Computed example of a mutant assay.
Amino acid sequence: MDHILLSICTKLSDSQSVERTGMAMLDVQILSGFMLRQSGVETDDLVKRVELLPGRAVLYLDSLGEAEKCVEIPLVRAFKVAHVQPALIQVFDYYEPRKHSHFQPEY
């Protein structure tokens, strides 16, 4: 498997006291041995900006609400790595970072 299309879906938790956030950030660790495909993540009505950092991609999202929103991150294998570990994904409110959620997806 040399190409992966990582699909990440998120929404505002039912336990939140607001119906919508302001800007939200999606911080995605890239799996060892993979890199963002050259075409990258396109900006649109949801994804306003993409920042590439070593081993991570940070997506600035317009806002999150009660409806699920999904983004796709195209990855390509740069080199083979044995025993690839899960990568951490975090979602947090840009203006109130203490409001966050994180998980380790199953690949």
Rank of each mutant, 00 (worst) to 15 (best):
R77E: 15
Y94L: 11
Q90S: 15
A82R: 14
M25P: 00
E72F: 04
E42A: 10
L88I: 06
K69Q: 15
Q38N: 07
S13G: 12
P97S: 10
G55E: 11
E72R: 12
Q29Y: 03
K80G: 00
H83K: 13
G22H: 07
F34T: 00
P54W: 08
R77M: 15
D93I: 04
L26E: 05
V58M: 14
E68S: 10
Y60A: 13
D27K: 08
L75T: 03
Q90D: 05
P97C: 08
V76I: 15
E68F: 04
E19S: 14
F79E: 14
T43S: 08
V71Q: 09
P86K: 10
E72C: 08
G33A: 01
A67S: 11
V50C: 13
L31D: 02
E66V: 13
V58C: 10
K48W: 07
A78G: 01
M35V: 09
V84A: 10
H83N: 15
D44A: 07
P86Y: 04
Q29K: 08
E19Q: 12
Y60G: 02
L75M: 05
V81G: 06
R56V: 05
Q38K: 13
E66K: 15
V84T: 11
H83A: 14
T21K: 01
M35E: 14
Q29L: 00
A67L: 11
D93N: 14
L75R: 02
K48G: 04
V18Y: 11
G33Y: 01
L52M: 15
R56A: 02
Q38A: 11
Q16P: 00
V47D: 03
K80E: 13
R77G: 03
S15R: 09
P74S: 04
V47M: 06
I30F: 01
